[in-house]
Design a protein around this nucleic acid. Structure first.
Lengths: 342, 342
DNA sequence: CTGAAAGCGCTTACAG
DNA sequence: CTGAAAGCGCTTACAG
């Protein structure tokens, strides 16, 4: 591999000049620049990024940490991040944690080992010690997108999960539903905890009793929706509506409902969450809560760029969601409608 | 940030000893090792990966190049790669090219700039000059997975696209179909070219005329399937079966068929390709061609490890596919069956 | 505008 | 088992 030295020798200048001619052409005379450029291409020179980063103490690279690469949810977020990152000269590396905390750690270690300048985490499942030093301060340029930590003061971009869940439930109540079940993710995660609270508090606000057996917890995959949906629909007092906290789980519910000959939406309303592309392609088309995924990506990258350039970032940003009504929801059968005492 | 120097000073040894104690504990005395370990944790030492890679001329990192991060197709392939990579001490970086060739290039440049030791490309859309030197030799450790180059002798892991397409078409012909259309990807891509050839050659083998208007080319997304399906189903002589070269496109066809009140499968058989998780969750469930995605990932990583360790890799590996029959296909209406002259 | 020199933080023959 | 020294390939104050 050719190095600055080889170029310098061939061009008859010092390595300092080679470096300048290539990185800051305006710092050398036009003649020199041409000599260097010619020599560089002649020896097939390509700068060693490691050496450069080591010397400059910056890699112009940030790592995007994905909890797992399976979900198509993340791809739009990544698109949003990419758009901004490349505009500002940052390279993007994507780290798939595959839901393993050891791998999650390894991506955070890329910062400690100086291979990346910052971290954009789409996972909140990170040990505090990786983020906070003993003095309780955030010790690296990091932004959390789509998730949040309960206590740690890390800049965060997210939707209002509590409010979004509430909107979905209220929509169902307005149509007369009261037997409203819920398929959610790990409740130890703040995101799902907030959504479940939004769900139950809305029920209570309307004086609708909340049964524990209506709240199901899983990994929000197709198969989880299918299995948990089956349990819900096998209940003696089965729900007239199921709110799922992912579109995939909702599509799983659609499948089991079909197998059990429960027509959707006439006897069962199903609501998803995310508004993935596929939610328009299932049968029936899915009513769901839209998340502005690309915007989440852009906004979080913007925050990270602020931090990287020494600005105090906005500590928290909440982005709007939207209820998208499609075919999978309607008022419940007449005998199962909510009686509101006036 | 603490460096070897800081640790050395605190432990009262040389930096060489610190380096040895941490990387090759068996090279130093137990007493020394403990002193160093204690000092390292006391100053919060974390090695600078850049400096190490620069010195050792290896990064123990490989980059996986994705044509785009949108498709859930790649996630299983990545899982397969990860499994093997981590076992062998390699870190994985995922590069999303977002279908832009300039970004694709940038990931290949990570090798030139010594930031990765090798490239595992799930895209074949790479300029030859990035891979082949002027002498016509492959100039970097690289394996192509799932795709292939026409001429360049790069180690490649793929399925038999021609044969797989043929199996799908034969299955339809066996049931009596002869009006068999096809929705495929860019035919300039070897993969889709092979599939279309498999399709048309099988038709010809059975003396079934191939109409150009039955072969549709697009990006194989949901929406492409929907739009191209609409064109096909609006033809005066519309097909009784549509073979799609992706599950997403097939699901798009399912949607337009429903909108046009064409029952699947009784009046229209639809076949997908890939066997993504969602192909079991659409209505009707999709008949499709299974690709061993995880195996593609593992096998290609194995090849890359061979190359990295100086072994001559297997130049080409073909992995088996499988026709998965579900609900979206059946014999055509009785008046549209193939008359085979005996 | 240009060059000599130092230094980023490691690792590793070499010598003892 | 350990240390002094060189060197991986860059960049950048400093001096001219």
């Amino acid at each position: 591999m050719a190095t600055v030295k080889d170029v310098a020798k061939l061009a008859g200048v010092s390595t300092a000049t080679v470096s300048r001619a290539l990185a800051n052409p305006e710092m050398v005379s036009p003649t020199t620049r041409q000599k260097v450029e010619k020599a560089a291409s002649e020896v097939g020179y390509s700068p060693n990024g490691l050496a450069r980063s080591l010397r400059k103490s910056e890699s112009k690279t940030i790592v995007v940490v994905l909890p797992n690469i399976d979900s198509t949810f993340f791809s739009d977020v990544v698109h949003g991040i990419e758009a901004l990152a490349h505009k500002h000269g940052y390279k993007l590396l994507i780290g798939d944690a595959g839901n393993e905390s050891s791998r999650l750690r390894s991506y955070f270690e890329l910062f400690e080992s100086k291979q990346v300048d910052g971290v954009l985490s789409l996972s909140s499942n990170v040990p505090e010690s990786m983020i906070i030093n003993s003095a309780g301060e955030v010790k690296l340029p990091i932004v959390i997108a789509g998730e949040y930590f309960s206590d740690i003061p890390v800049p965060t971009v997210h939707i209002d999960n509590h409010y979004s869940a509430k909107k979905g439930v209220e929509y169902l109540i307005m149509m007369g539903h009261y037997k409203i079940a819920c398929i959610t993710g790990k409740r130890s995660t703040p995101v799902y905890n907030a959504r479940v609270n939004g769900h139950t508090e809305t029920m209570k606000k309307w004086k609708i009793p909340v049964t524990d057996e209506y709240i199901m917890e899983g990994d929000l995959s197709f198969i989880a929706g299918y299995n948990l949906g089956k349990q819900l629909l096998s209940l003696p007092n089965k729900p007239s509506a199921i709110v799922c906290h992912s579109d995939e789980a909702a599509i799983g519910v659609l499948k089991i409902a079909r197998e059990m000959n429960i027509p959707v939406p006439s006897e069962l309303s199903v609501i998803g969450f995310d508004n993935l592309a596929m939610s328009e392609y299932c049968v029936p088309e899915l009513t769901t809560i839209h998340q502005p995924r690309q915007l989440i990506g852009e906004t979080s990258m913007k925050l990270l760029l602020d931090i990287l350039s020494g600005k105090k970032p906005n500590p928290e940003m909440t982005l709007p969601t939207q209820l998208i009504v499609r075919e999978s929801s309607c008022p419940p059968p007449i005998d199962q409608r909510l009686q509101i005492d006036l």
